[in-house]
């Protein structure tokens, strides 16, 4: 199997910073690291398995209804994850609220099925799905790290900014916990990435 399949989505074709997909949920669930990790993991599972199943079915899917069929496959996995979280990780499912359900509309998943899984064998499709999900999760974790640290002074809900700083006049940045700041942070990441990888810059 081509190594590029799992290397590229992490950096060169990162779904969030290069393809600019899945922005909506990146803004919504990155206030805290815990939520971001679970969301990243959920998306990885969904991209992986829906790509796998779409690829297994690829020769039988009627071309005219293929988008609907993809949606049904994606929705199946999303609902499974949502139900599972509600049963065994109730607090998290509450804090992720509607965003787990909205994984269905995450363009990364449909994008990878349409662009890759329908034309490739199951195993590479599965790896491609997982890698893209991981590329997304990676950005989520970086975003949530800065947002939680600067916005709430905590990491994984554990206080890391010492009380003495607050006493000396340090304040949490309230803007960090609002979605617009996540958009600005994504912009900063895109900027850094394009400074390193010059061929990503548009002429």
């Amino acid at each position: 199997m081509d190594k590029e399949i799992y290397k590229k989505p992490l950096f060169l074709t990162n779904p969030v910073t290069v393809l600019v997909l899945g922005i909506c949920s990146s803004l919504a669930v990155t206030v805290q690291m815990k939520g971001a990790c679970i969301m990243g993991l959920s998306v990885m599972i969904v991209t992986g398995f829906s790509s796998l199943f779409a690829s297994l079915l690829r020769n039988g899917i009627p071309n005219r209804i293929r988008i609907i069929v993809q949606l049904v496959i994606v929705a199946l996995f999303v609902i499974l994850i949502d139900q599972f979280l509600k049963a065994y990780m109730y607090d998290l499912s509450k804090s992720l609220s509607v965003y787990v359900g909205l994984i269905i509309t995450n363009c990364i998943i449909m994008g990878r099925i349409e662009a890759f899984a329908l034309g490739n064998k199951p195993w590479p499709s599965f790896v491609d799905g997982i890698a893209n999900g991981f590329g997304y999760a990676m950005i989520l974790i970086v975003l949530s790290f800065f947002r939680e640290l600067l916005g709430s002074g905590t990491i994984f809900s554990i206080k890391v900014i010492p009380q003495s700083w607050y006493d000396a006049g340090y304040m949490n940045n309230g803007l960090m916990i609002l979605p617009p700041m996540a958009l600005i942070l994504i912009g900063v990441i895109v900027w850094i990435q394009r400074s390193i990888q010059k061929d990503l810059q548009e002429k």
Partner: peptide, 16 residues
């Protein structure tokens, strides 16, 4: 023929 109407309808029904 995966593009025929019959096949499409049956496929969708079974899947759902």
């Amino acid at each position: 023929n995966t593009n025929s109407n019959t096949y499409t309808v049956i496929y969708a029904t079974v899947l759902v």
